[in-house]
């Protein structure tokens, strides 16, 4: 009995703690006022209307650079994983660990390191610079994902296609790609989401001409404090997170999420 009570209290407190901040952002965004009350005294879309053009542009920038980085890094990491897994390259361990290194070094540090080379190359404060930084990080996860996908796919399919007369590239195009496509799609979704919310990696190389939304929101709170339009934008990002969850849950089923999230790091 006591144990049940303890469980109930624990669950209630923990869930409240997990839900509250998210709920607060959403509620506040509909009150159009920073004096948040849980009573929802007033309902307005002012906070959303107040979102300035700069936010939308930054949001569009974030989405496009995140999407492009996802696509490019998968275009590179899927063939790389195929070469490593199927080619039985003697240097597989070394290459694989090298590519994973940018993911082991903290993002903040990689960001600082990138700044040192990007400034002389005029890549800081540019779309290309942000894209490259994201790709360095995405390659690691993309490679790990695709290596796992390919290791899980029996080699016989490729050998069957080969013995039927298909050359290497044809095997890759007609057999490997279609067969791992569902897994790659899920990897893409995770990479994209990670790219949308990344902060520490991009903080130093971002600039006025290339500002991801999380960094714009960050500098606004530093410069101006909490403003309604920032809450509105934050709420939109919450919706994006929920949409992402819904998409993955529909693709995978909720029970697989726990395991998949693990592979995000470590």
């Amino acid at each position: 009995m006591l144990a049940r009570l303890a469980w109930a209290v624990y669950l209630t407190v923990l869930l409240a703690w997990l839900v509250f901040p998210i709920a607060l952002v959403v509620i506040a965004s509909f009150e159009g006022d920073l004096q948040v009350s849980l009573a929802l005294r007033q309902f307005s879309l002012d906070a959303y209307r107040a979102i300035p053009r700069g936010y939308w542009e930054s949001f569009r920038f974030t989405v496009s650079v995140a999407a492009l980085a996802t696509v490019c890094s998968l275009l590179i990491s899927v063939p790389a994983a195929w070469g490593l897994v199927r080619g039985r390259l003697p240097e597989r361990g070394v290459v694989s660990n090298l590519v994973l290194l940018p993911d082991i070094v903290p993002q903040l540090i990689l960001g600082i390191a990138l700044l040192t080379v990007f400034i002389p190359l005029r890549l800081s404060n540019s779309f290309a610079g942000v894209l490259l930084a994201l790709m360095a990080m995405n390659l690691a996860m993309g490679l790990r994902f695709s290596e796992a996908l390919l290791s899980g796919m029996a080699e016989e399919y490729e050998q069957a296609a080969q013995s039927l007369g298909a050359g290497r590239l044809t095997v890759f195009r007609l057999i490997v790609l279609p067969m791992i496509a569902p897994g790659v799609a899920i990897a893409a979704l995770f990479l994209f989401m990670q790219n949308l919310i990344v902060f520490e990696l991009l903080f130093f190389i971002a600039g006025p001409r290339a500002t991801p939304i999380s960094i714009l929101l960050f500098s606004d709170i530093i410069d101006r404090g909490v403003v309604p339009q920032a809450i509105g934008m934050s709420a939109l990002l919450v919706y994006a997170g929920i949409a992402f969850y819904a998409a993955v849950a529909m693709l995978l089923g909720p029970k697989y999420l726990a395991g998949t999230l693990m592979s995000r790091k470590g």
């Binding site: 029996a154 016989e156 050998q159 069957a160 013995s163």
Partner: peptide, 16 residues
């Protein structure tokens, strides 16, 4: 392998 003109049936069939 792709130029040997051999038909191969695998234990698990390996149907695409």
């Amino acid at each position: 392998a792709n130029r040997r003109n051999v038909g191969l049936v695998f234990q698990n069939y390996a149907l695409f």
